Amino acid sequence: MTATTLAPAKSRAPFSAMTPVRYLFALLIVGVTVAPLLFVILGGFRTNAQINTDPAGLPSPWVFSNYANILASESFWRFLGNSALISISSTAIAVGLGSMAAFALSRYRFKGREALYSMFTIGLLFPLGVAILPVYLLLRQLHLLESWVGVALPQAAFALPVTIIILRPFMAAIPTEIEDAAVVDGATRLGFFWRILLPLSRPALVTVSVLAFITSWNGYLLPLLVFNDPANFTLPLGVATFQSQYAQDTASILAFTALSIVPALVFFIFAERHIVGGLTGSVKG
């Protein structure tokens, strides 16, 4: 007689009276977040007459000329290129300097280390809007107005605090035994940083890169003060300019706005998995 073993039943999360409330709250958040985005995207496929007749309706028929006209516009691609140049440069500077600073603050012990780290923490309390006037005066003295560098550098500087705060605990959580083994194998401190620590910190690096990129991409106030020439405008400024020029063409404005959202949205969707891992690792560290 052979004995049969029963597979243990899978444990299920207990159902409580608050479960429907949680699901309802989650659906409410999703609706509030997604509904405006869908309105903008679908509005670009409608005519102005359709929007005036039924603002919340679906396209009937679907109109593709609004998106086609904007994609064929030279100004849209110029705005897109300016935003990409500034955002990529700002992100590279913030992540590059932030990772090196986080490495020193997490792996080295020196006098004033915690005070220096606290200074970066306090930097979170000062958004760019608070210091916009001193930043503008400094950029004017450095002759960086009407230059993409005058936007990328301040945005990178204000992205450093959150970059260091996320990276430092993540790097500190990496066992010292790995570093000792690398030193025994002949690796220098800099070699350990480039070849071992940075690859192991990839989730956190992706997290801070996405945060810095999206913050720079959506920046409006600093480019507004730095740029006066429309040829240098970024996409947020381009959207505002397009709205003022075509104030009566609501459908085209919605199409232009939707296309300006797409790059940052796609970038965020592909990196979302790494964002969760990076934030989880930084909290555990």
Rank of each mutant, 00 (worst) to 15 (best):
57 G>T: 03
281 G>C: 06
251 A>V: 06
67 Y>D: 09
226 V>E: 05
54 D>Y: 09
265 L>S: 12
89 S>P: 00
80 L>E: 03
241 T>I: 08
243 Q>I: 14
125 L>V: 11
18 M>R: 13
191 G>R: 15
193 F>P: 04
184 V>C: 08
210 V>H: 09
161 P>K: 04
276 V>A: 13
147 S>A: 10
193 F>R: 01
260 S>Y: 07
186 G>Y: 03
239 V>D: 09
248 Q>P: 00
96 G>F: 02
154 P>A: 14
152 A>G: 02
257 T>H: 07
99 S>L: 05
159 A>D: 09
55 P>G: 03
91 T>H: 07
112 G>H: 03
249 D>S: 13
64 F>T: 15
33 T>R: 11
162 V>M: 13
182 A>S: 12
109 R>G: 09
245 Q>L: 15
253 I>C: 11
276 V>R: 11
138 L>H: 07
150 G>M: 09
97 L>R: 09
15 F>N: 10
208 V>Y: 01
182 A>L: 07
13 A>N: 03
129 G>F: 12
42 L>Q: 01
281 G>R: 02
267 F>P: 01
269 I>A: 11
186 G>V: 05
111 K>A: 14
95 V>D: 01
189 R>F: 09
118 S>M: 14
171 M>D: 03
126 F>L: 15
131 A>M: 14
200 L>P: 00
39 F>A: 10
269 I>V: 15
35 A>P: 05
11 S>E: 12
3 A>P: 07
89 S>R: 06
278 G>H: 02
51 I>Q: 05
102 A>W: 00
27 L>A: 13
27 L>S: 11
229 D>M: 06
235 L>Y: 00
6 L>K: 14
90 S>N: 10
141 Q>D: 12
101 A>Q: 05
196 I>S: 08
76 F>Q: 08
42 L>I: 06
132 I>Q: 04
4 T>N: 11
84 A>M: 12
163 T>K: 13
240 A>P: 02
97 L>M: 13
136 Y>H: 11
12 R>I: 08
9 A>N: 09
158 F>T: 03
194 W>M: 11
195 R>F: 14
91 T>F: 07
96 G>T: 03
137 L>H: 09
235 L>H: 03
48 N>F: 04
174 I>C: 03
